[in-house]
Design a protein around this nucleic acid. Structure first.
Length: 302
DNA sequence: ATCCAGGAACTGT
DNA sequence: ACAGTTCATGGA
């Protein structure tokens, strides 16, 4: 991690392969998003560090990310935690040169990696949030999924009001673990999904499921297998979680409808690609299937 | 109206 | 192992 602590604010020094604007396009893909806000090229987000709420504003200035604190100035230790958070949020540990080198020999990826150069995997720090978002999104349109997310956040999440603007935190698994299925049913979440979500929350509360435990196994197949053991997590969700939360650049939600639509559009098909075609197309993406998928998703927002 | 949506579990073979 | 069915509701 490369950063400077200027006490009243901090500077993050990202690698060369970083484009803040491109990341903002992805983060701004839905106007229903409640967990961050984009205004005039700046990104606002509320997080919780060591039980303290921290609201910050990100801007890209002179090749660094400036992080301004909008409520209290965190102490030295918490400022470092914020820096770590942002470093992980934009997946700044990953060296994209290898991906770009590989993409240059790929018909499907060559164009979009140049077009969206510097786009990083926008990750979700919280494992519970990632899994819930994936479950909510299963088999429904994205607009409705955002509506459900907004309802669960505004009903069960913490918030901070500054200058009349409300900033939200995703609810913790502790808060959801004590709910009944009916509580979530009231938000129009289906019974099955409500069961899945509460089950995941309970598994996290007992410590049976956590980022630490899952990642301990390291191996892609092992991690995926252990995720799938939980009800509500199938192959697609496991890959989604490994991609968006656990930073596995080789995770590949091959059945993803967004991925299919992106490929259909880029290749000018009048139908979605078959699984066989996807396997053939992705044969040379080894190690970078997650980034390939993410760049393909980005191509849907032009 | 009708189809389908960033799937997963369940059932029957 | 594999295919078909059910869940559930809104968006286009």
């Amino acid at each position: 991690m490369n950063w400077n602590d200027c006490q009243s604010y901090i500077k993050i020094n990202p690698p060369k392969e970083f484009n803040f604007e491109e990341c903002l396009v992805y983060l701004g893909r839905s106007n229903q998003e409640v967990l961050h806000e984009i205004k005039e090229g700046s990104l606002y987000k509320l997080i919780k560090v060591n039980e303290r709420l921290i609201l910050f504003k990100l801007e890209y200035i002179n090749h660094y990310i400036k992080v301004e604190f909008l409520n209290d100035i965190p102490n030295k230790n918490d400022r470092e935690e914020v820096a770590k958070y942002i470093w992980e949020w934009f997946d700044l540990n990953t060296n994209l040169n290898e991906f770009y080198a590989l993409a240059n020999h790929e018909n499907l990826l060559k164009g979009i990696t140049h077009k969206y150069y510097g786009l990083r995997m926008i990750s979700i720090h919280d494992l519970f949030e990632t899994i819930v978002w994936a479950i909510l999104g299963q088999q429904i349109n994205l607009t409705f999924a955002y509506t459900l997310k907004r309802r669960i956040v505004e009903r069960y999440g913490e918030s901070l009001i500054i200058n009349g603007d409300t900033y939200w935190l995703f609810p913790s698994y502790e808060e959801i673990a004590i709910l009944n299925v009916d509580d979530l049913r009231q938000l129009q979440i289906t019974m099955k999904k409500a069961e899945y979500i509460i089950g995941i929350a309970k598994a996290m509360k007992t410590g049976e499921l956590s980022k630490e435990i899952i990642v301990e196994q390291q191996d892609y197949q092992e991690v995926k297998k252990s995720l799938i053991q939980f009800r509500g997590i199938g192959a697609w969700t496991a890959d989604y979680v490994m991609m968006k939360c656990l930073h596995y650049t080789n995770s590949f939600p091959i059945a993803d409808v967004g991925l299919h639509n992106a490929i259909k559009q880029l290749l000018g098909y009048d139908r979605k690609p078959t699984i066989e075609e996807l396997e053939e197309l992705s044969a040379r993406w080894e190690g970078w299937q997650g980034y390939a998928t993410f760049y393909l998703w980005r191509s849907l927002y032009d």
